[in-house]
Design a protein around this nucleic acid. Structure first.
Length: 490
RNA sequence: GCCCUCAUCGUCUAGGGGUCCAGGACACCAGGUUUUCAUCCUGGCGGCAGGGGUUCGAAUCCCCUUGAGGGUACCA
């Protein structure tokens, strides 16, 4: 234990996307690298939009990616509860403390009134802000509002002194905000829930968080939070603001996107390998000095350094993810890929629930051939369809024309004979038959291969013929060749 | 508008004054291997946003402009 404590605090208001997960991953990496602890906290103070369903999705996807946490929702720990909605007593206590000390006050202004204030500030070329009207509200007016049963909010009283609030960011260096741009922000909503900027400080402080790694979209919130840390006398953690991940339109990723391509679940369902997402996401905003890209979990942990994370935003490029996933699919142990492909094959109706040892061995041949052509596993069934379905011609007329060609019957007949004579049925042996036919038969090479391909697969291109025959088996091969011949009336 | 951040090939990035007429990866193009497609191998195309400085010397340091992104919520 290094004493370093990090956290990943998602709000369950949408499906977890690439950007959220990258933040989780970098927190996880830095925690593991430093033998620190990672806390999972659920920030559900937005009652209207938070759901348990989204929370479950977050937990599920993190588990899929292998991002285990040491403490938090679903894991327990001594700093709980870890769901903000279970911690309202705590926030209340601190709000009262600030109220008593005069560092916060009730505000009864209506939304319309606040809009006016903002417009007024904007017209003067200033940042739109609340003007502090309720800072000194006479008791009579307060009573009046209470009679009207207006529900107040609590605002933090930003000290009047003009000073620079400096964030010493692990990634960006010193970032300065002048306190004059801050208005008296709300720390408690009228629905009796704390706001993010208030709750996050109390939780991070009480949970002993030493490093806050989060997206750059939080950078402008940080000065407000620093003020709260100071007002409450808490130690300020070290901050690191990660560059944002942008979508193809170079805009921030949304939790309610019109494109499924940003959600982690989408990639899991399509058959991307978790280790690929892990590897790929680690390279979004971080890289090794020697340009190594394909790395194991352990390698990434040992080489990762939060200080090496770059400052500029990165566009999420599915093309490169596809390349990496395809590469892993081709290079990972075949049995593992077969296991992972089986659900997709079942879904396509190609295989049944129970798979015999024999069937499995056959499946292995199919997947071995199909995996050279896919980017992700859900594409396996379409690539392997010809081995499961009745033969279907891409273009039947053209196929018949092909079978009508000179010497085709000779080739097919010879092929059938030679296959029948084969003692050891395997791809190499089948290849030898083709090689012999090329030498011995007085026909063009194309006539040996192409009509056979069309007859066996229905297509003009596809896997190597010796493998096709090996997978189809002698009987099915013979059947398809005969059927081609009869189509051509021979 | 105001505040903050960022700025190297289409995309992800290496580069932290000379060894860079800028290196790698994806994508793309060409060639090779292969009976075809795919895989695989080789090669090619393609970039330091612009302008001022500083310096003997800037992709690298400073300033300005421009551009991009984030924030500006009783969302987080």
């Amino acid at each position: 234990m290094s004493g370093m404590r990090l956290r990943f605090p998602p709000s369950p208001t949408g499906r977890i996307h690439i950007g959220n997960m990258r933040t989780a991953l970098f927190n996880w990496l830095w925690a593991r690298k430093n033998e620190g602890e990672l806390v999972l906290r659920i920030e559900d103070t937005d009652l209207g939009r938070s759901t348990r369903e989204f929370e479950d999705i977050i937990l599920k996807e993190m588990k899929w990616l292998g991002l285990d946490v040491d403490e938090g929702v679903g894991h327990g720990g001594e700093f709980g509860p870890y769901r903000q909605s279970d911690r309202i007593d705590i926030y209340q206590k601190y709000a009262e403390k600030l109220l008593e000390e005069g560092k916060a006050y009730y505000c009864y202004c209506s939304p319309d009134e606040i809009d006016e204030m903002r417009e007024e500030a904007a017209s003067k070329g200033e940042m739109p802000r609340y003007n502090g009207r309720c800072r000194t509200l006479p008791a009579e007016e307060t009573d009046e509002y209470k009679k009207q049963s207006r529900k107040p909010v609590i605002r933090y009283r930003v000290p009047d002194e003009d000073r620079d609030i400096i964030i010493d960011d692990s990634i960006r260096g010193k970032v300065t905000f002048n306190s004059s741009v801050l208005d008296d922000f709300i720390i408690y909503k009228s629905d009796d829930m704390p706001t993010y900027n208030f709750a996050v400080v109390i939780d991070d402080a009480l949970m002993g968080i030493t490093e806050v790694i989060r997206g750059e979209d939080h950078l402008s919130n940080t000065p407000k939070q620093i003020l709260i840390y100071e007002a409450l006398g808490f130690d300020i953690p070290r901050f690191a603001h990660l560059p944002l991940i942008l979508d193809e339109n170079k805009a921030k990723l949304k939790k309610r996107s019109d494109s499924d391509a940003v959600y982690i679940g989408e990639y899991r369902e399509k058959g991307y390998l978790p280790e690929v997402l892990f590897n790929f996401l680690s390279l979004l905003g971080w890289s090794t000095k020697d340009d190594q890209e394909i790395m194991s979990r352990e390698e990434i942990i040992s080489r990762f350094d939060i200080a090496d994370v770059n400052k500029s935003a990165a566009v999420f490029d599915v093309e490169k993810l596809n390349w990496m996933n395809g590469k892993y699919i081709r290079e990972t142990d075949l049995d593992k890929i077969v296991e992972l492909s089986i659900p997709y094959l079942k879904k396509a109706g190609y295989i049944s629930e129970q798979i015999s040892k024999e069937k499995y061995d056959w499946l292995k041949r199919v997947v071995e051939v199909a995996r050279t052509k896919v980017d992700y596993l859900s594409q396996i069934p379409e690539e392997a369809g010809l081995f499961f379905e009745e033969l279907e011609f891409e273009d039947k007329d053209k196929a018949i024309e092909e079978f009508l060609g000179e010497d085709v019957e000779l080739v097919f007949t010879t092929l059938k004979e030679k296959l029948a004579e084969l003692e050891d049925f395997n791809p190499d042996a089948i290849n030898k038959i083709f090689n012999k036919m090329r030498k011995k038969l007085p026909v063009k090479a194309r006539t040996i291969y192409h009509p056979s391909r069309v007859a066996l697969t229905g297509m003009n291109s596809g896997p190597e013929l010796n493998h096709v025959i090996y997978i189809l088996g002698i009987e099915e091969t013979k059947r398809r060749l005969d059927s081609a011949l009869s189509l051509a009336n021979r």
